[in-house]
């Protein structure tokens, strides 16, 4: 049965490089929040290597998964599993039959097209860790790109790498569309000649010299990210989100919004069954307040209040 598409969904994707920073956790929470706001939400597990979203919602392995799309060529809309939250459906992943690096270009393009065709208000795509280009391409599909990290140097390093790679991949796509394939790479190689020192200079150069009708500049500045900081153990760590955001702006030239933070919550470590925890979502506990703030900031493209800064 073919569904008639009536809505244009807003697509959110989450990445960030390092594994275990809370991507799946945050997106299951945000999806729940949006669904409880009476939005139609579809959450897709595109973490091919480490698919685990179904555990967060207690969905049996016997249900259809993304494997049915890639292997059996079934349409995505046939793969929706119901959850115990009314407006939230999920497409579960599969960690055995597909690997992210083996997805063919045509398969990926088909996947991206089909995601856009799903009927919902919001489509949230959970991605795996790592810098694989297929992961990045799915990330770039989103209307709102969210990255998450924890206050540790290795995770922050991964975040910068991830954002940088995504930015360059996007830039190359744009230039290629304007018949300027490899332009960024060539200019970067000759950067000394052009007096280019970093990505900000490179972008300025492209905007100033290769962009005849302003369309490239416009598209370049549409690349923006939302940053979330997870597993804070100390309120002073809130500042690191502001710092990471600042570095993304000043060193990468990417419009960045610090959407919020989540404290490390030992309760839910004890409470391993997150499926018990989710349906009780209401804004009474700290974590739920934090999720609400993050969700609303992403919806409204707002940054958390600067008064959160702890200026010691």
């Amino acid at each position: 049965m073919k569904q008639v598409k009536t809505k244009v969904a807003e697509i959110w994707a989450i990445g960030g490089g390092k594994g275990g920073t809370g991507k799946t956790f945050l997106f299951s929470q945000l999806a729940t929040y949006l669904a409880l706001k009476k939005k139609q939400v579809i959450l897709i597990d595109s973490d091919f290597g480490g698919a685990n979203l179904r555990y967060f919602f207690n969905i049996k392995k016997s249900e259809k998964s993304i494997k049915n799309f890639f292997v059996n060529k079934e349409p995505l809309e046939n793969l929706l599993s119901h959850t115990n939250i009314k407006n939230l459906k999920i497409i579960t992943g599969d960690r055995n039959s597909i690997s992210i690096s083996s997805i063919k270009y045509s398969q990926k393009m088909k996947f991206l097209r089909h995601i856009k065709m799903l009927n919902a208000d919001y489509i949230l795509i959970d991605l795996g860790g790592g810098l694989n280009f297929n992961t990045i391409d799915i990330f770039l599909l989103a209307d709102k790109m969210i990255v998450i990290t924890v206050p540790e140097i290795t995770a922050i390093d991964n975040l910068f790498q991830f954002v940088k790679n995504a930015y360059f991949r996007n830039l190359n796509f744009l230039l290629k569309k304007h018949k300027l394939k490899d332009a960024a790479k060539n200019i970067w190689e000759d950067r000394k000649i052009y007096g280019i020192k970093d990505i900000v200079d490179l972008t300025d150069y492209i905007k100033g010299n290769l962009d005849f009708d302003g369309s490239i500049s416009k598209k370049i500045s549409e690349f923006s990210i939302f940053i979330v900081l997870n597993k804070l153990r100390n309120p002073n760590e809130i500042n690191q989100g502001f710092s990471i955001k600042s570095l993304c702006i000043k060193y990468l030239g990417i419009p960045s919004i610090y959407a919020g933070y989540i404290a490390s919550d030992d309760n839910f470590r004890k409470n391993l069954s997150i499926s018990d925890y989710l349906p009780k979502f209401n804004i009474s506990t700290r974590i739920q307040k934090e999720i609400t703030e993050i969700a609303e900031n992403i919806i409204n493209k707002e940054q958390i209040k600067i008064s959160n800064i702890k200026n010691a």
């Binding site: 140097i153 922050i156 390093d157 020192k197 970093d198 570095l247 060193y251 990468l252």
Partner: peptide
């Protein structure tokens, strides 16, 4: 410490 991964060769000048 957060400068380490991003500063690269740009150094103090930037």
């Amino acid at each position: 410490f957060i400068f380490a991964p991003i500063e690269g060769t740009l150094g103090k000048e930037k």
